[in-house]
């Protein structure tokens, strides 16, 4: 990897709004997060809308013949991305609860997510 140690630390939030499998956004978005993690920035990842389906347990992609990348979300914490937020309303609208996710997440109210977004230097939407 073409990794350097920058002196600047920026607050960068990935905003994941797509369901997995139907499109590639959440898979390639994960790849970006794992690369950016090597740059020692202040990273977070927020799941809004259908993005919340990305983290659902028991996804079995064998019959589809596609890569089961969801387990890889489990390594985010090992990569130093510990701030994983889920939008409460998106989760509830979709009949999900925190136990349904493969990793521990922080469930946040709309206003809390707005405030988090506003404090970022950059947001990366996938």
């Amino acid at each position: 990897m073409e990794k350097e140690k920058p002196k600047i630390v920026k607050k960068i939030m990935f905003v994941m709004r797509h369901a997995p499998h139907g499109t590639i956004y959440s898979y390639e978005g994960l790849e970006t997060a794992l690369i950016m993690a090597a740059y020692e920035q202040d990273l977070s990842m927020t799941f809004i809308g259908d993005g919340v389906f990305t983290l659902v347990k028991n996804q079995k992609t064998e019959s589809l013949g596609t890569k089961g990348f969801v387990a890889t979300y489990g390594v985010l914490e090992d990569y130093g991305i510990e701030k994983i937020y889920v939008d409460k309303q998106s989760m509830e609208d979709r009949g999900l609860k925190p136990d349904d996710f493969i990793i521990p997440v922080q469930v946040k109210e709309t206003s809390e997510i707005s405030a988090l977004m506003e404090e970022q230097d950059a947001t990366v939407p996938y």
Binding site: I48, G49, S111
Partner: peptide, 12 residues
């Protein structure tokens, strides 16, 4: 698409 509706929820 519900993108605008979703966006407006986070607007302050």
């Amino acid at each position: 698409n519900n993108t605008l509706t979703e966006c407006l929820r986070f607007v302050t």
